[in-house]
Simulated scan of single mutants.
Amino acid sequence: MGRRRLWNGEPVGANPFALPRGPLGVAAGWMLAVTNRRQQADVLAALAPGAYRSVLEVGCGPGVLLGLLASAPGVEEVAGIDPSQRMVSMSRRRNAAALRAGRLRVHPGSAGATGEPDAAFDLVVTVNTVAMWPSLDEGAAELHRVLRPGGRAAVSWHGASSRFALTGEEDATVLAALRRRFGAAERRDLGSAVLFEARR
């Protein structure tokens, strides 16, 4: 990522992968659908989503993980939010059958303002978005707010072998933010990704 200053309150700016929009946004969405697929599958396997009735994906991008969640046995309700209207549209098209069946809904929203009600979900998951949140503390607070008591927050980012991997200091900052809000949090290395987990 080069020199970066994460979680300083600044908007994500013109990065087409952070906030896909316009013609470049379509290309970015298709690229994200391909490049994030392995990490999403690894995170899904680690989470065993069938243990949760209601799931929210924060930063759903083009909707690949949303589709996997919506088809997981035992999952009754899936919601996806993304700050990019382009990604919301792509997610809806990709998962049109699940939307028509009432198993899925997708709308604009961000990590700090999901637009979802209090204590609505058993699981909140996000893959490769945490370094793009303007405020880490606001994002952690919002995940806590929308989870039911006993609910699980799962925040994943690129693994150590990726050029986008968090530094040791950034890694510790994510864990500390979750611990401040949830009281306890753990970090797991999945190979393709790191997974930070906390329970309300």
Rank of each mutant, 00 (worst) to 15 (best):
A111N: 03
L65H: 03
G183M: 09
L32M: 12
V78Y: 03
V130I: 13
D118Q: 09
D42L: 14
S110I: 02
A46V: 00
L69K: 07
P149I: 02
E77M: 13
R181I: 11
P149N: 08
L65W: 03
A18S: 08
R5Y: 10
L104M: 08
Y52I: 03
E57D: 07
R199W: 14
V127C: 09
V124N: 05
G9D: 12
A46T: 02
R200C: 13
G112H: 07
A70G: 03
G80M: 01
A131V: 05
A46M: 11
T167M: 15
P23A: 12
A28S: 01
R181E: 15
L65D: 00
G115Y: 00
D122S: 09
R5W: 09
R180E: 15
G9S: 15
D122P: 05
S54V: 07
F17H: 11
G191I: 00
T126G: 10
T114D: 14
E186V: 14
T35Y: 06
N36W: 01
V34A: 10
R94A: 06
A111I: 03
V64G: 10
V75K: 08
V127F: 05
W133P: 02
F121C: 12
G9T: 03
N128S: 07
Q85L: 14
V43L: 01
A14K: 11
S91E: 09
S135P: 02
V34C: 09
L166N: 05
A101E: 13
L66F: 01
V130K: 07
A45E: 03
Q40S: 08
T35E: 13
A79E: 10
N8P: 08
P83N: 04
G151E: 02
G168R: 15
S162Q: 06
G59K: 03
G61V: 04
E142G: 14
H144M: 12
G150V: 06
G139M: 03
E77H: 14
E142C: 12
E197T: 14
R105L: 07
L104S: 11
R163V: 10
G80L: 10
W133L: 11
D118L: 11
P117Q: 08
R187C: 01
P62M: 14
F121G: 09
L104D: 14
D82L: 06
